[in-house]
Design a protein around this nucleic acid. Structure first.
Length: 282
DNA sequence: TGCCAGGATGATG
DNA sequence: CATCATCATGGC
């Protein structure tokens, strides 16, 4: 991964990365598409516009410190996705799935934001998740420039009442958010520490939050805690995604099951997987 | 109108 | 341990 500092931002050469695929595949809910290869988002209280043409990424307005501390890990620019994709492309079942969206990276989102986002996501659809998260930030997050808002802190949400959350229209999930906020704010749930626990212990800790079931826990682990080995392939991919692997699971699942899961999800939602899975189930 | 959407929960066989 | 109704909301 090469990069250089420009007066108006950071330019990165990122092979095997597609901005549109990465930001629209359903792993994040706070990016707005301004055009093809052109997005605006807020991460960790910082606003940015990102453009991509070919394999060149432009982080508009970011300085070197921003890049090193935030955007470089956020976009997971140091992982060898070429090798991962190649490994998956050798598998007969996984190959067409990976080929549908070969440029997906797993974003390293803030754990607290991931927890809230995927609490809201349960039994919900992506456009509505986005609108609820947007209202959550506008109502309880710190205002930034251009009418944007930071994601609200756990402390800010910990003292909020159900009545105050009502305008979000997030339904029965509102008490889940408050429970999570209180547990994080009072130190009962240390997300930084949980991220470093063995996978099964981290799971168990996350599940202590109301509304965090098997699915949400894996999403927080993968998208908010950098655990690429989340979504255990043997119990998850086969059962939940409805994908069968007659030749057995490819070896890459051992260390990047989460990425494979995201590929499969995107493919089953937007790609030919929709029809294929329907035929299988009927 | 009924069904679905990045599910989880509590009750019941 | 498996199944099942229920939960709030909005789009189709």
């Amino acid at each position: 991964m090469e990069y250089r500092v420009l007066p108006h931002g950071i330019e990165v050469k990122a092979s095997c990365f597609d901005l549109d695929e990465t930001l629209s595949c359903g792993q994040c809910f706070r990016w707005d598409q301004l055009g093809p290869g052109n997005w605006r988002g807020v991460v960790s209280g910082r606003t940015i516009i990102v453009r991509q043409s070919e394999d060149v990424l432009l982080l508009e307005g970011a300085d070197l410190a921003d890049f090193q501390e935030l955007w470089r890990p956020y976009f997971d620019l140091d992982r060898d996705y070429n090798a991962l994709r190649q490994e998956m492309a050798e598998h007969p079942v996984l190959a067409p799935i990976v080929a549908f969206a070969p440029g997906i990276h797993i974003l390293a989102q803030p754990a607290w934001e991931a927890l809230c986002s995927f609490l809201i996501s349960q039994n919900n659809n992506i456009p509505r998740i986005r609108s609820i998260v947007s209202r959550l930030c506008a109502d309880f997050g710190e205002p930034l420039a251009d009418g944007l808002f930071a994601f609200p802190t756990p402390e800010a949400l910990a003292c909020v009442t159900l009545e105050q959350l009502a305008p979000l229209r997030c339904g029965y999930r509102a008490p889940y958010l408050i429970d999570a906020a209180r547990k994080v704010a009072d130190g009962h749930l240390d997300l930084e520490a949980i991220a470093r626990l063995p996978l099964d212990e981290a799971r168990e800790r996350l599940r202590s939050v109301k509304g965090v079931g098997p699915k949400v826990a894996e999403c927080v682990l993968l998208y908010g805690m950098g655990r690429m080995d989340a979504f255990p392939a043997d119990v998850w991919i086969k059962r939940t995604m409805g994908i069968l692997f007659p030749q057995g699971l490819p070896s890459c699942f051992a260390h990047c099951a989460g990425l494979a899961q995201q590929y499969i999800y995107h493919w089953s939602r937007c790609g030919p997987g929709r029809e294929i899975l329907q035929e299988q189930s009927s």
